[in-house]
């Protein structure tokens, strides 16, 4: 027996959750469209719309360059970690060897280290490798957190692929590489999209390593560039521009998620129910 208040209550609750989730983003959009003292007025729709913030962030600093940096770093991180994770997960998921579960557990525990804990060591490592202030150094350091979870998730999916399919391919004369690329990859496609997207988001939003390992404004990625934005004087915090920049960099993520939405859902549920 459902009370007649059940459905309205459900809607009310959903509306509340949506407001809590979406309001900050809405506020950022609204703020990005305001300048000067308008910024500090509380209004839900600005009286004077202006796009000057959006123009200025690209004019006054190498923000376009920062975006390209971020794209390069995120795409690089995702592709290298997926490549390594696929091969690793094949071994961890399909091949029986001594110490397999110990290896899996250590991979999981590595991903639990707080970033700050490995920051100074990472800094020394990057300097020694000559990758300081280099985007490759960022890709390298980002893999410390993307690789564990991509490997772990893909291993889970890899384990669920029926053994007979692999055996059929073996009997058909397929090499291990062919099995991986022609049989497993197409079957793992939803899982790859899901993990790839998660890795992309993680790399796109990363701040601490990017701040520590880059020094010139030309080689910064977006989160650092936004954080280090300065106003006309040192006493002014350019809220409008910061918000404009945030909106600009969040849009690609939203577009990506919307494009792959169906894939993500099927990827997330593919693990839950056999079939």
């Amino acid at each position: 027996m459902r009370s007649k208040f059940y459905t309205p209550f459900l809607y009310l609750l959903s509306a509340l959750i949506i407001i809590v989730c979406v309001f900050p983003f809405y506020w950022a959009i609204v703020s990005s469209l305001k300048t000067g003292s308008d910024l500090f007025k509380v209004e839900f729709w600005p009286a004077h719309l202006t796009f000057s913030n959006f123009i200025e962030i690209f004019k006054e600093q190498p923000f376009g360059h920062n975006i390209l940096n971020s794209v390069f770093v995120a795409v690089g991180t995702v592709s290298i970690s997926l490549m390594l994770a696929i091969t690793a997960s094949y071994a961890l998921g399909r091949v029986r060897f001594r110490g397999r579960s110990a290896l899996l557990l250590s991979i999981l525990s590595i991903s639990m280290f707080p970033q700050v804990a490995i920051l100074s060591g990472m800094f020394e490592l990057i300097r020694t490798l000559g990758l300081y202030n280099n985007l490759l150094g960022l890709i390298f350091s980002y893999m410390t957190f993307t690789l564990p979870f991509t490997t772990w998730i893909l291993t889970t999916f890899m384990k669920q692929l029926p053994k007979e399919i692999e055996e059929a391919a073996i009997i058909d004369g397929a090499s291990t590489l062919t099995i991986c690329t022609k049989i497993f990859l197409p079957l793992l496609w939803p899982a790859l999209v899901t993990t790839g997207l998660l890795a992309f988001i993680a790399a796109w939003n990363e701040f601490l390593y990017a701040l520590t390992l880059t020094v010139e404004s030309q080689s910064r990625t977006i989160p650092v560039a936004i954080a280090l934005m300065t106003g006309a004087s040192e006493f002014e915090l350019p809220w409008g521009k910061i918000m404009a920049a945030s909106v600009v960099v969040t849009l690609p993520l939203i577009v990506l998620v919307l494009i792959f939405q169906r894939r993500i859902v099927s990827g997330l549920t593919a693990g839950a129910v056999k079939g």
Partner: peptide, 27 residues
């Protein structure tokens, strides 16, 4: 693969992402 055997599995073990033609042609 080099033994000259082929096998039919209980669970069919077809490659789900390939058409019937591709399944048969794979080997």
């Amino acid at each position: 693969a080099k033994r000259g055997v082929s096998m039919v599995f209980q669970s069919y073990a077809l490659y789900p992402h390939m058409t019937v033609y591709e399944n048969i042609a794979f080997g």
